[in-house]
């Protein structure tokens, strides 16, 4: 869908440009699109595992997971952001796991129809109207971040997912004694939904809340983390917060030995 949107947008821009030349007026361009095209922007995520571990309000609920479900209205089986608990990993109490948006993505390689592509800004997207549902990309992903729409979403289920997940996020913030605030211009703020639900039979995955990022806002999991353990930003810009963190801290990336070159970094505040 997103590649569709951006293509449509691109055509629109072209149309507007052509129209503007004809009319003699100025061209209104999409800032993100031009930046992405110039290769200056590259989005990445850095997750502070220590801070995450100390966020006891999240115990058993995980605000990031449910913020993601609220905003992206994923089907019940899909968790674009998943929190892996300490029973299964050794190096952290809790491991938030979004899509790694790899620089050498196995999923993009194997797609037979080019439905999944990597944008110039590093985000890997799925064209829900081109995907044939072969699930080869899901099999090829070492992180297991790709989910399948086994059935058609219904309006009731979407509403229910949104309401339940949103109440869970609020519960965490209440427990933490903080107030969850969104930018007042943020039209994509939960519980309002812009991201469209996917039809049955296609693959979907975390896209760093592309509909929010394109409008200049951070992904939902970043905003809704009560301790601010998840950082998001443009590593192409040396002055951004994430660039500073990656410059100063020691970090790890998951399954680096697979040479997927992931763009999600894990670090500890203390290091």
């Amino acid at each position: 869908m997103y590649s569709d949107v951006s293509r449509r947008k691109f055509l629109k821009i072209c149309g507007v440009a052509a129209g503007s030349v004809l009319l003699g007026s100025t061209v209104v361009s999409s800032k993100e699109l031009l930046q992405a095209a110039a290769g200056k922007t590259k989005y990445a995520m850095a997750i502070d595992l220590e801070l995450c571990e100390n966020t006891h309000a999240c115990d058993g609920i995980n605000a990031c997971v449910h913020a993601c479900k609220t905003v992206n209205v994923t089907p019940p089986n899909a968790y674009w952001m998943m929190a892996i608990e300490s029973e299964h990993i050794t190096f952290a109490e809790r491991l938030p796991r979004p899509c790694m948006q790899c620089d050498n993505p196995p999923c993009v390689k194997v797609c037979p129809v080019g439905a999944t592509t990597k944008r110039a800004d590093g985000i890997i997207i799925v064209d829900y109207y081109r995907c044939i549902g072969c699930r080869l990309c899901a099999v090829s992903c070492p992180y297991g971040v790709r989910y399948f729409n086994w059935d058609e979403p219904t309006k009731e289920r979407i509403d229910q997912t949104r309401a339940e997940s949103w109440s869970l996020v609020n519960e965490v913030w209440e427990k933490a004694g903080k107030e969850l605030k969104f930018d007042e211009n943020d039209t994509t703020a939960p519980p309002y939904m812009i991201e469209i639900p996917r039809p049955h039979g296609v693959i979907e995955k975390c896209n760093f809340c592309l509909h929010r990022v394109e409008r200049g806002f951070d992904p939902a999991c970043v905003v809704c983390c009560p301790s601010g353990a998840i950082k998001f930003g443009n590593v192409g810009d040396p002055m951004s917060e994430i660039s500073q963190i990656l410059h100063e801290k020691k970090y790890i990336r998951l399954l680096e030995e697979f040479n997927t070159k992931p763009n999600v970094y894990y670090y500890n505040t203390g290091d």
Binding site: R135, V139, G144, W150, D151, E152, H200
Partner: peptide, 14 residues
């Protein structure tokens, strides 16, 4: 109904 009627699921995609 879609592939929901099969036993396939995550991560048993095939």
């Amino acid at each position: 109904k879609g592939l929901v009627v099969t036993g396939l699921n995550e991560p048993m995609y095939m």
